[in-house]
Nucleic acid binder design. Structure first.
Length: 575
DNA sequence: CTGGGGAGGGGGCCC
DNA sequence: CGGGCCCCCTCCCCA
């Protein structure tokens, strides 16, 4: 006995659930778009997905291989077995893109459909972009990039690379800094909730699985002891536990296009429907093909699990919190190379941990409405926004499109785009009414501001490059430029995960490491790992007993300078 | 319970 | 761009 429509009904239900975000347990990030889905469904449709969802609740897909529009079709296909191609896109280009994506995602049925369609229309690979990514060649290429840290399983999935680097990658900054192998945070697949702390704060809202990964394998400048330290910390070798785990990518390219603002559940104006006929055989065949696994970029937000709560408490303000956690993912602004696309607003920054932020009191609150569309020339606008899919917590009410800089929500991408244009370049600087740059009130006296650009305390001979804002001088123009960014209202380097903005790319990169739990520096003595070399150096004094910092007042010695400083404070403070 | 020290971690910033 | 340092926050331990 068999219910004729059982499978169909089931899929229908699942698709409806997906549209509502119900029971969705994985988020797929494609460029700026988020898609929620069910792990089981993805895993059942592709071994690639299967490998990805095993350990992750949040998956970044290579934006070279798939874009939001295409992925929406892909997802629709997975959940319906139907290929809905929009009328305006039913060109070969669309199918070619679909084919690329399908190959990348190892959706062999879909790839076969696309090939069939392309063949039928006499099409061949589109010029410029191969219809298939050439998995094997990419595999080779990528294998070269794999560090020893990358688990090499029997079906080693390789990370995608921006191999064809003709075009600047939106996320290239990040990739530069966090290379694929660095990004790999070994998924130790540990059972249980070991963790060394709280267990919440997983970025992906639906998740429960993200295990804290102590078995970090960080190739970046790992000290010689890394191997042992890693082993010690991670009882399971990565390659065994997650042969498929591949490079982590935080790459959220952020170039905006319209497609990225469409909801997965929203129907495309389908003009053509291709339905998957019983192609299970083909599926079996293709799924067993040993051709290289697709490029893989996935996030290991789970690895960060343990570190979130603390950071939330100490650093992120509630709005940051909302944006980064409630929404699950911040889909990032462009990586910051174009500063006009990144804005920093007061609320973003207030509560900065140490109160040193230059923008805290910038009076930016009214900047949002200022200008009314100054249009900063060039580029897309609205690179800063969060796209919320249905099913996310309605932290912004009905306004699904949220401007990251100022946190305002908008019901449509158009309105958001219009709003973002109101953040114009003028906001980059903290402006006084008169138009002259001012420093923060609490920084220094006004006389400094009005002080002629003369010799600073550093001496103008050796430091000829002077900041026009604060009169600090520097040896070289690059440093000056770097410094001047600290006066910008807008911090040009946003974290793609939490949206926090930074004045320096390096700082942002360092910050990203903390998200990803990347701790390349291991102590040979105890195996403890650190995100920075300097911390390790400090830490080593614990083992050596060296206490180079001595209190001149009481003779107390300290291993860390900061502790001496706080100690001195004890001496000086009346309390 | 409280204060002080030790230490981990993050961000800013200069070289 | 990485390294290094400073500053801050925080947690934990202990007296």
């Amino acid at each position: 006995m068999e219910l004729p429509n059982h499978a169909k009904q089931l899929l229908l239900q699942l698709n409806q659930q997906r549209a509502k975000g119900f029971l969705c347990d994985v988020i797929i990030v494609v460029e700026n778009a988020l898609f929620r889905a069910h792990k089981n469904i993805l895993a059942a449709s592709s071994i690639y997905f299967k490998s990805l969802v095993l350990h992750d609740n949040l998956i970044n897909l290579d934006t070279e291989m798939v874009n939001p529009s295409v992925f929406r079709q892909v997802l629709d296909f997975i959940y319906t077995g139907k290929l809905l191609s929009s009328s305006d896109q039913s060109s070969e280009r669309n199918f070619s893109a679909l084919l690329t994506a399908a190959s990348y995602l190892q959706l062999h049925d879909l790839a076969a459909l696309c090939r069939k369609k392309l063949k039928r229309s006499g099409g061949k690979a589109l010029p410029g972009k191969p219809s298939t990514p050439g998995p094997l060649s990419r595999l080779r290429l990528n294998n070269q990039r794999l560090s020893t840290s990358t688990p090499a399983g029997p079906k080693n999935h390789y990370p995608p690379t921006p191999s064809d680097a003709d075009q600047p990658q939106p996320d290239e900054g990040l990739r530069d800094k966090l290379s694929d192998d660095e990004m790999f945070v070994g998924s130790s697949g540990r059972n249980g909730n070991g963790g060394n702390g709280s267990s919440n704060g997983n970025l992906s809202s639906g998740g429960s699985a993200g295990e804290p990964d102590l078995g970090l394998d960080l190739s970046k400048k790992s000290p010689p002891s890394v191997g042992t330290a890693t082993d010690a910390l991670s009882p399971h070798s990565n390659s065994q536990e997650s042969p498929q785990s591949a490079s982590v990518s935080t790459t959220n390219s952020a170039s905006l296009d319209d497609s990225s603002t469409t909801l997965p559940g929203v129907d495309t104006c389908g003009s053509e429907t291709m339905e998957l006929n019983s192609s299970s055989k083909a599926s079996e065949e293709t799924q067993n093909q040993p051709d290289g696994p697709p490029p893989q970029k996935k996030s290991r937000q789970g690895a960060r699990k343990n570190e979130w709560p603390k950071k939330e408490a100490s650093g992120l303000k509630s709005e940051d919190h909302d944006r980064s956690l409630v929404n699950g993912v911040i889909v990032g602004p462009k990586d910051g190379r174009s500063s006009d696309q990144s804005f920093q607003c007061k609320d973003e920054d207030e509560g900065g941990e140490n109160g040193q932020d230059h923008t805290d009191e910038s009076g930016q609150s009214d900047g949002e409405s200022a200008g009314g569309g100054g249009g900063t020339g060039g580029g897309h606008h609205s690179a800063n926004y969060v796209y919320r899919q249905e099913g996310f917590e309605p932290a912004f009410g009905d306004n699904l499109y949220v401007c990251i800089p100022c946190g305002k929500g908008f019901p449509s991408s158009e309105q958001l785009n219009a709003h973002v244009e109101t953040h114009n370049e003028d906001e980059l600087y903290i402006k006084e009414e008169g138009g002259t740059f001012v420093k923060e009130e609490d920084e220094e006296e006004a006389e400094d501001l009005s002080a002629p650009v003369g010799p600073s305390s550093f001496g103008s001979e050796t430091r000829p490059f002077k900041c026009t804002v604060c009169s600090k001088s520097y040896k070289d123009p690059a440093t000056l430029r770097q410094h001047e960014k600290s006066h910008w209202l807008t911090r040009p380097f946003p974290c793609n995960i939490c949206g926090k903005m930074f004045t320096q790319r390096g700082t942002m990169t360092r910050h990203m490491r903390s998200h990803l739990g990347l701790k390349p520096f291991a102590c040979e003595e105890c195996g403890m790992r650190f995100t920075r070399q300097y911390r390790l150096t400090e830490h080593m004094r614990v083992h050596s007993g060296e206490k180079p910092y001595e209190c001149q007042l009481c003779g107390g010695k300290f291993t860390q300078q900061r502790n001496l400083i706080s100690h001195l404070r004890m001496h000086t403070s009346p309390t």
